[in-house]
Design a protein around this nucleic acid. Structure first.
Length: 465
RNA sequence: GGCCCCAUCGUCUAGCGGUUAGGAUCCCAGGUUUUCAUCCUGGUUACCGGAGUUCGAGUCUCCGUGGGGUCACCA
């Protein structure tokens, strides 16, 4: 039985690094028919943000990663932690330290001046005298004095850190609230977490947590420390890289399946496979095969994946999603035609939405550069001729192929090249020179609208003279 | 600075002692397309450096270099 968890602190929005470790944890649990839990690490009451917490849960909802059971809030479990603190105090595995903040600071400064590693010197470890007046003590846990703390990391291999590197760290602040490394170990143990998958910025916390596990007699979980995701320049991700908030990807018109596919391939692979459905990820993912080294965020690849998922998405689903981007075509009788004509022409939903907009609503003006290039002296005559042919057409005009026949017949009877009519017609219909195929556009908007738009262009040309 | 981790095309990666070092993305060229895009074909680009082990090293060992993480009464 596998139980994993994602344990963010509610100090900011969910970013892609967090989403990836969450994804890895979620996949591993799902693959094994196990459990995936969500825990909010909010022991530092002064740094919590309710908005950030809700944003995290919202982001989970958007990408479709459902967690099991109720969200665990550490801030609601202080009584529980207190019991363990008391027990540790009782058994002598933890002790009260009466050193003031000022004393600690000066100790640190002195150590830094000697180029030593700043660390607590253990002065109250075996203290039995009368405690100094007026100092609210912190509780420290007894870490081993010698030897090594080692563990096998599923990603990095065997990790070994000298005990001298781990000091007697604080497990409860002077106000009584417990600290991170203490509660993480307790909660992971109590929640039955078997596999801890997290960022490798936590690698150094692991020995501390192991001290807690050992003191409390808990069984160690398996640890997997995943290397960081850097920005496109290979530097640490920061707010300035934009789009660090997962929900920002939705605003950009990124599909959750594309984002997840992108993230799963950052640090993990399965041979040469690039495209993974959620089911395939679940089937194939294994944290043992996660890469050791850090990777860089690459927007080209994300966009390529996004284009792929847009292209292969059923039109009905696509239409529904497009609503969030200002396009309402659900129930439109030409829905299939509209999407077939546009879904391959954009890398994001925002771009697809724009493609559709310029077809459905006539452009307000004509692209200036295009006008100079395409609207020539004989254009009006040609466009008028085309209107005539369109209106005099005696067969059905529904499908793109119907319009294609008109266009073909037109150029052959007028003995002109497609170029003579193609570009001017496109500019007349869309106001610009790129976009969906002419046949499709006309089939979507119909004869009347087509004629209307061409006439508008003719007026424009005449007025410009 | 101490400790720990990492190192294959620009980027994501395959490789698990013997390969013309593979795929994807990006970029370039050609084809398809009345435009743009899609799609198809082809191409450029990589084992950080130095020792060692070995018949043979991208793969194993050591050193160096570079990058990252961490050293709180934050998480």
């Amino acid at each position: 039985m596998i139980t994993t968890r994602f344990a963010p602190s509610p100090t900011g929005y969910l970013h892609i690094g967090g989403l990836r470790t969450a994804l890895f944890s979620w996949l591993w649990a799902r693959k094994n028919g196990g459990t995936f839990l969500l825990r909010i690490e909010d022991t530092d009451l002064s740094r919590n943000s309710k908005e950030a917490m809700e944003a995290i849960i919202k982001a989970f909802g958007w990408v479709g990663m459902e967690y099991d059971g109720e969200v665990v809030y550490q801030s609601k479990r202080f009584d529980l932690y207190q019991k363990y603190i008391d027990a540790l105090l009782e058994s002598g595995k933890a002790y009260r330290c009466y050193m003031s903040k000022e004393e600690l600071d000066s100790l640190r400064e002195a150590q830094m001046a000697l180029k030593e590693r700043p660390r607590y010197d253990g002065r109250y470890r075996d203290f039995s005298g009368a405690p100094p007046e007026g100092v609210a003590p912190v509780i420290r846990i007894k870490a081993p004095l010698e030897g090594e703390i080692s563990f096998v990391d599923g990603v990095k291999g065997e990790i070994s850190i000298a005990a001298s590197e781990v000091d007697d760290f604080v497990i409860a602040r002077s106000d009584g609230t417990p600290t991170y490394n203490f509660v993480v170990a307790i909660d992971d143990a109590l929640m039955g977490i078997t596999d801890v998958i997290r960022g490798d910025d936590h690698l150094y916390n692991t020995p501390k947590q192991i001290v807690v596990y050992k003191a409390l007699g808990f069984v160690l979980p398996r640890f997997f420390h995943v290397a960081m995701i850097n920005n496109e320049d290979g530097k640490k991700l920061s707010k300035r890289d934009g789009a660090t908030d997962v929900m920002e990807y939705r605003n950009m018109g990124i599909l959750p399946e594309a984002l997840l596919n992108f993230l799963v391939r950052l640090g993990w692979s399965h041979g040469d496979q690039e495209i993974f459905s959620i089911d395939e990820m679940i089937e194939l993912f294994d944290p043992q095969t996660i890469n050791k080294s850090a990777s860089c965020y690459n927007s080209d690849k994300l966009l390529w994946l996004n284009a792929h998922y847009i292209k292969q998405m059923p039109n009905i689903n696509l239409a529904k999603l497009l609503e969030d981007y200002g396009v309402r075509i659900e129930g439109h009788d030409k829905l299939e035609m509209i999407l077939d004509a546009t879904k391959e022409r954009g890398k994001t939903l925002v771009q697809i939405a724009r493609q559709i907009e310029i077809i459905l609503a006539p452009a307000l003006n004509f692209d200036e550069k295009a006008v100079g290039k395409v609207f020539k002296s004989d254009t009006v005559e040609i466009l008028e001729g085309f209107i005539k042919m369109l209106q005099g057409w005696d067969r059905e005009l529904h499908l793109p192929s119907d319009y294609h026949a008109v266009l073909e017949y037109f150029v052959s009877t007028k003995s002109i090249g497609f170029g003579k009519i193609g570009q001017p017609l496109r500019l007349s219909l869309l106001g610009e020179l790129s976009g969906a195929g002419l046949d499709e556009i006309m089939a979507i908007i119909g004869v009347d609208e087509t004629v209307l738009r061409i006439n508008r262009a003719i007026d424009f040309i005449n007025n410009a003279k």
